[in-house]
């Protein structure tokens, strides 16, 4: 794998993960447990689509085959999507929604933090702006994990269940593959060991404060999203998200 190929792959992973998680949050519009949460969820979702657009635009320039950011987002099928499996998991209850967000946010925060020092200036620029947003997202989701974990008996049970349900999707966040290694060696992406340590450290800290038990370090992990092998959920997400683009392929302006 050349560095150029790895870079395109890497950008699509960042973009697709933002895009799909945002799509999941959009599904909650009008259905959040409080009005303040409506605002906050939409705010986070909005940040993520904004970031996705920046990553897609850069990826489109590098891929340079006539597709723009919209085509990348709305005209690729599941096997071409590179999002983390975690991001496509269903909302379920608010504990799962917030647990998913928290595991993602920790990864996102440390990834972006490292990317602000990327040798690729365009990436560093996008990451600097995104990091401010991700910092807020992480503060918010860790607070919720603590509130639910250390709230009532019911919320504790639900939050622990959420951790148990989602744990098998977290391995993908911190298990590097060739693309990750090429990016790290080029000084473009984060150092995989550092990222894994940071992620584990913060997750353990917050879960402990939340009186929750993390999954086992040697637990079996479900991976594949980064290579286009997804859970069954993604097909339905894309069917909805890409409905107009596929039903009206001749439309060039919306």
């Amino acid at each position: 794998m050349t560095q150029a190929e790895a870079l395109q792959e890497y950008l699509l992973r960042l973009a697709d993960s933002d895009m799909i998680l945002s799509q999941r949050l959009c599904e909650l519009c009008g259905k959040a447990p409080a009005l303040e949460e409506e605002m906050a969820l939409m705010n986070v979702a909005l940040d993520l689509v904004g970031q996705a657009r920046n990553w897609y635009e850069y990826a489109a320039e590098l891929i340079d085959d006539g597709r723009d950011a919209d085509k990348l987002a709305f005209r690729r099928d599941t096997q071409d999507y590179r999002n983390l499996l975690l991001t496509e998991q269903p909302n379920e209850d608010y504990a799962v929604t917030m647990g998913r967000q928290f595991f993602f946010d920790v990864w996102h925060y440390f990834t972006l933090k490292s990317l602000t020092e990327s040798s690729d200036e365009r990436i560093a620029g996008i990451a600097s702006k995104a990091l401010k947003e991700a910092t807020y997202h992480l503060r918010r989701s860790s607070e919720w994990v603590k509130r639910l974990g250390d709230g009532t008996e019911e919320s504790h049970r639900r939050m622990q269940d959420a951790v148990d349900i989602l744990w098998r999707f977290t391995g993908e966040l911190i298990t590097p593959d060739d693309t990750d290694r090429v990016m790290a060696e080029a000084g473009i992406g984060p150092d995989p060991d550092q990222l894994a340590n940071d992620w584990r450290g913060m997750v353990t800290e917050v879960l402990t404060q939340a009186t929750l038990t993390p999954g086992a370090e040697d637990a079996w992990m479900y991976m594949g999203g980064k290579h286009g092998e997804h859970t069954e959920h993604l097909g339905f997400i894309l069917a909805e998200m890409q409905f107009l683009q596929r039903a009206y392929p001749d439309a060039t302006t919306w």
Partner: peptide, 27 residues
Amino acid sequence: LPEGNWVTRAPTLKRKLQLMAKIQDEA
């Protein structure tokens, strides 16, 4: 709610962002 009905099916990134911002304003 009637806007939430389309926020998951917006046709472009720009329109999706605009609709999300509008919904957020309404909250």
